[in-house]
Nucleic acid binder design. Structure first.
Length: 558
RNA sequence: UGGGGUGUCGCCAAGCGGUAAGGCAACGGACUCUGACUCCGUUAUUCCGAGGUUCGAAUCCUCGCACCCCAGCCA
């Protein structure tokens, strides 16, 4: 065996951040690395966050460092404990462990406040009385420099007194802000005297009512990183313009460590929406049943849909990490679940759109049981007994009176194998007055019983079935993409909502064993797809299944 | 016509001066009691474009072009 360094961990695809980390470790710049995943608890985590989680926690895991979970909770008006609780649960569900390193930016508020006073003392921050509109007007534009606030040159003493009174609650929301004194003419707008603190008389979900001034992201994030000893602070591209400010604060404050920020491109997925704003809107407008609606790209939604943590992790590895804006096709993540579920999901038979199949030459009250393997490639998954009888449910579209070209299933005169049972020959169909097929008629060949010597006669098609007498009736929810176009248009993205993103089937017929399936149990319904017992709505004896994803289907219809 | 980024196969993505990895998709074929799975095989003389440097460039230089981000007291 060769002695490569990373024997114990699977080889991860190279990306520029891994390379940087590897170099920093090799050069001795860092002895160990510390990363962090810093969500704001103002919404549920989605698949885009999963990319960041896998990156940050994955780096820590693969390079023997650690990764912190830190709530970036600097804006109490948007944050709730419901969100932070859900975030923790989702990170754990995804398979990552912060091992005690859970922090809140709000726990650093006192330190941050002290640092703000220090900046005031050194003449690098000032209290501004301008209101929001005036500040905006003074900021200038992309091509024109800004103008300095008339309050920019207050004395240190006055600034200090005012800032303390801000903290003391003497002023109403919006009356004053603390600003960094940098450069109103900077071509980087973030450096045009950015706001450090604003007055918000709001109760904080974590810090309670101790504060009425709150630091802005820019004044909190880098210092939080420094406090925690973060070595590699990884964020998305839109923060690149903030890096000079991130560094300005670190340069001007006596921070204990010097983290370095790196940016990567956020995930875009086709046929869905990803921004928290849009996701929240879908929830609020009732377009979906909640954050965990199985159509949502949230982690709780994907989970309820039947996605596995493994599949999501594989997805995050597969798409890579880069700096170029990219759109990942939905089919990639779908393929990842198929891959995972193909390995681990036991097979079962379920008829979604049932039509009767009557075997004319089978005894009317006859019944037998077939022992069927739960997985064709994995005998260790065992087998189960599946009852059989004269009347079965089969899939309506497995019968075609006039078969289209290439059709390999039931059609008058044709033979088909009933999976794990007998070969039957179609002899016709019963119809109602309107000509609708109410039952397909066939005869069976007792010699072809599955497993019997000589029963392997070749037939073109194999179909699944469920004994009518033993079937359990279930509700099955068929999900499709939320958005009907690859990348929804800007403002009227709601117009691109897929009207058929959910299809409710209430009279599905499943093999009896499935009546007892527990929440989140996953199965492959043969020939159809992967299905998951709904976490919330399923009842014993009256199961509800969500379709996670269909099987691939090379049978090109039409 | 301010600043910051990005452009390598249909979609991602390695590559960091030595002669275009890999994944997904696609397309052939084999296998199959799931039209699934699996398995073989094929798929960029070319790296946004044009010049230049070099024995040699996707990699260095120059000039263009396209796209993304920034003017919240959001993160």
């Amino acid at each position: 065996m060769s002695n490569n360094s990373e024997q114990t961990t699977p080889v991860q695809p190279a990306n520029f951040i891994r390379n940087i980390v590897a170099d920093d470790l090799a050069s001795g710049k860092h002895e160990t690395i510390v990363t962090r995943f810093p969500p704001e608890p103002n919404g549920y985590l989605h698949i885009g966050h999963a990319k960041s989680i896998c990156l940050n926690f994955g780096l820590a895991r693969d390079f023997g460092g650690r990764c912190h979970l830190r709530f970036d909770d600097t804006n109490p008006v948007k944050e709730e404990v419901e969100y932070s609780e859900s975030i923790k649960e989702s990170v754990r569900w995804l398979g990552f462990d912060w091992g005690g390193h859970m922090y809140y930016a709000s726990d650093y508020f006192e330190q941050l406040y002290q640092w703000a006073e220090q900046l005031i003392q050194s003449g690098k921050a000032y209290v501004d009385d301008l209101n929001a509109e005036q500040i905006r007007a003074h900021r200038g534009t992309l091509t024109e420099p800004g103008k300095e606030s008339p309050f920019r040159n207050r004395s240190v003493e006055e600034n200090l007194e005012l800032f303390r009174r801000m903290r003391g609650g003497e002023f109403p929301d919006g009356a004053k802000v603390l600003r960094a004194k940098i450069d109103m003419a900077s071509p980087n707008i973030n450096l045009r005297d950015p706001v450090m603190y604003r007055i918000l008389h709001a109760v904080h979900p974590h810090a309670g009512d101790q504060w009425c001034i709150y630091p802005m992201y820019d004044f909190a994030h880098g210092q939080s990183d420094a406090i925690e000893g973060i070595t590699h602070s990884i964020c998305t591209l839109e923060f690149e313009d903030h890096k000079p400010l991130y560094e300005w604060f670190l340069d001007n404050l006596p921070v204990p460590n010097r983290p370095r920020q790196y940016e990567f491109a956020r995930l875009n997925l086709t046929y869905t929406v990803m921004s928290k704003r849009k996701l929240l809107q879908l929830v609020q407008d009732g377009d979906v049943s909640g954050w965990d609606d199985p159509r949502m790209p949230t982690l709780v939604g994907l989970r309820r849909r039947g996605y596995t943590p493994e599949a999501i992790r594989t997805f995050c590895e597969r798409i890579g990490v880069g700096r170029s804006d990219s759109w990942i096709d939905m089919s990639i993540i779908e393929e990842c679940v198929r891959e995972d579920l193909n390995q681990k999901a036991p097979r079962a038979m379920g008829v979604l759109r049932p039509v009767k199949l009557i075997i004319d030459n089978y005894p009317a009250d006859g019944t037998e049981e077939f022992q069927v393997a739960n997985h064709p490639q994995q005998p260790e998954l065992g087998s189960r007994a599946v009852p059989f009888g004269k009347e079965l449910w089969i899939e309506a579209d497995d019968f075609q009176e006039i078969p289209e070209k290439g059709f390999k299933r039931l059609t008058p005169g044709a033979e088909v194998r009933l999976r794990a049972a007998y070969i039957v020959k179609c002899i016709g169909a019963d119809k109602d007055a309107d000509g609708n097929v109410v039952a397909v008629r066939c005869t069976y060949d007792p010699e072809t019983k599955s497993g019997l010597p000589g029963a392997e006669r070749k037939v073109k098609g194999v179909i699944h079935w469920v004994s009518a007498r033993h079937a359990v009736t279930a509700e099955v929810r068929l999900y499709d993409r939320l958005i009907s176009v690859p990348s929804p248009s800007g403002d009227d993205w709601k117009g691109d909502l897929n009207p058929d993103s959910i299809q409710l089937l209430t009279d599905c017929k499943l093999e009896p064993l499935l009546a007892a399936a527990g929440a989140e149990e996953r199965f492959q319904f043969e020939r159809q797809g992967y299905f998951c017992v709904d976490l919330k709505d399923s009842q014993p004896g009256r199961p509800v299944f969500n379709r996670t994803v269909t099987l691939r289907d090379s049978w090109v219809k039409k």
